[in-house]
Simulated assay, not measured.
Amino acid sequence: MSEGWMTVVAGALRAGDGRWLMHRRPEGKHHGGLWEFPGGKVEASEMPQQSLVRELHEELGILACAEHCDPAGFAESRLGDSGPRLVILLYTLTAWEGDPRAVEGGEIGWFTPAEALALPKPPLDVELAARLFRNC
């Protein structure tokens, strides 16, 4: 983490049928009610993929391996954006152990790329989804 901004990781989980997992943030939290790729803050002692494995276990109750986290892109907040300054690193995953569930509240759903693009999302997740699903 760096002074004035925060590194965040997010996971785009793809099921065998081509649908993607999205997490709806609990009401009452920042961006409550909006859909996002699950993930969270990178701690100072962690590499991003390690952080994603930890976050996916905490948020979804699944076990993932860092080797199965493939870099897919990033998005960053702009000067003048409201809220905390963020850089989100997005990784795709097609393998994990367990059935994802919303451990920390909110809900999860599996969506086609077109459905995921249409969901109300925080601005950086809008960017990430547009890049991820560009060729779908």
Rank of each mutant, 00 (worst) to 15 (best):
G39K: 06
L89E: 06
W35K: 08
G40I: 00
R25Q: 13
F74K: 09
L56H: 03
V53R: 09
L13H: 03
E59N: 14
L128Q: 04
K41W: 02
R24M: 15
A66H: 03
R131H: 13
T112K: 11
E67L: 09
E115A: 15
E115C: 09
E55R: 15
S82Q: 12
A44F: 02
A114I: 01
A10H: 04
T94C: 10
W20C: 08
F133D: 01
S2E: 08
F37I: 03
D17I: 07
A10F: 01
K41Q: 11
V8E: 00
A114N: 10
T7E: 14
M47L: 14
T94Y: 03
C69Q: 11
E43K: 09
T92P: 00
E97Q: 15
C69W: 03
G4E: 00
I108Q: 10
S45H: 14
L13I: 04
F37S: 07
G40L: 02
C69I: 02
F133T: 01
E55A: 12
E59H: 13
G28Y: 05
V87R: 15
M22V: 02
L63C: 09
G83S: 10
I108F: 10
T94D: 12
L56M: 15
E97V: 12
P100R: 12
M6R: 14
G109H: 11
C65E: 13
R85A: 14
L93I: 02
W110K: 12
V42W: 00
T92K: 01
L52N: 08
G83R: 06
L21H: 09
R19V: 01
D70Y: 09
H30R: 15
G83V: 01
L34R: 10
E127D: 15
V42H: 03
E43M: 04
R85K: 14
P123C: 06
P71S: 05
E76C: 12
T92N: 00
C65P: 00
L93P: 00
F133S: 02
P113H: 06
R14W: 01
A64Y: 01
W20N: 05
W35R: 10
H57N: 14
V9H: 02
F111S: 11
M22T: 02
W20E: 05
P120K: 08
E115D: 14
E58I: 05
L117I: 03
V103T: 05
P84A: 11
W96P: 04
G18L: 06
V103R: 13
S45G: 09
H57P: 01
L89W: 00
G105F: 10
